[in-house]
Design a protein around this nucleic acid. Sequence first.
DNA 1: TTTATATTGGATATTATTGTCCACTATTTA
DNA 2: TAAATAGTGGACAATAATATCCAATATAAA
Lengths: 144, 144
Amino acid sequence: MFSKACEYGIRASIFIAEQSLLDRKVSLKDVAEAIESPSAYTSKILQRLSKSNIINSDKGPTGGFSMDKSELEKVKLSSIVYAIDGDTVYNGCGLGLKRCNADKPCPVHNQFKVIRDELKKMLETTTVKTLAMDFEKGLTFLKR
Amino acid sequence: MFSKACEYGIRASIFIAEQSLLDRKVSLKDVAEAIESPSAYTSKILQRLSKSNIINSDKGPTGGFSMDKSELEKVKLSSIVYAIDGDTVYNGCGLGLKRCNADKPCPVHNQFKVIRDELKKMLETTTVKTLAMDFEKGLTFLKR
DNA sequence: TTTATATTGGATATTATTGTCCACTATTTA
DNA sequence: TAAATAGTGGACAATAATATCCAATATAAA
Ligand code: FES
Ligand code: FES
């Protein structure tokens, strides 16, 4: 569904968001431990998220990663997925033809469209804030 | 969503099914050309489908690949996906945790479950025969 | 202004996936 | 039974994705 990089990206964002709700900055190490991911690889992903203005990053001592509490509910899953995996989820064809194209549809186009529209809707209506709040409450897990 | 191998596998199955409806066996070359795939790689995939009893293969001159017309409507997309990609579509976690597990859910588990159930339903109710018939009518395309 | 800390960015390594090559086997037909 | 044909299987190659290493940069605090 998503690339591994994207999965890490979403998990990292949720963790950073949750900690930001508690007014805490987190270090790369914190993130990697919280989501159980290889830290150097995670670093690259956080850079992408930072450049896409999804998270903030500050260098130096007292530095770390954070998200603006006020903007938290504006960050949708779709932004994160787009920042890391691009638009393949939105425009890719289920059977691997160049692009999904309703004018020259692949055999599963109609069936696939239903799923993808559902997925789009989910990505565009789910905010990182709500996911972070559930995580904060201990209802969900970022590692196992 | 699916691996490239799986995409080729589905496309190949639809082509073989369509030709079988017309009582024609097809060669590896035929398949590769019809679905625009690398033929040696496609060969491996057809072997997997053959071993999973989804398609028939016959050696020697007059050999080739085919599907039993009578069993065609029993072949669901889910069988093909399972034969090639295994059960990751069914049991994988949307955020990459070891396995999807409702008892210790990842943050998107509930949202993801909706999508996956829809996908499952689609894979389990779509038969290769109907896809092949639409393709036969020129309504859909296996390459572009 | 020195030191310590934390992210950044580039190079490189590893692994999985995708793709190729070729000799071998089975089978049909002449 | 010889020759031609078509799939099989194993080894190998190329590419993409994932992961690591380390020197450089920025910044805060002493
Ligand atoms: S053309 Fe394949 S999914 Fe739309
Ligand atoms: S636990 Fe992640 S999708 Fe179910």
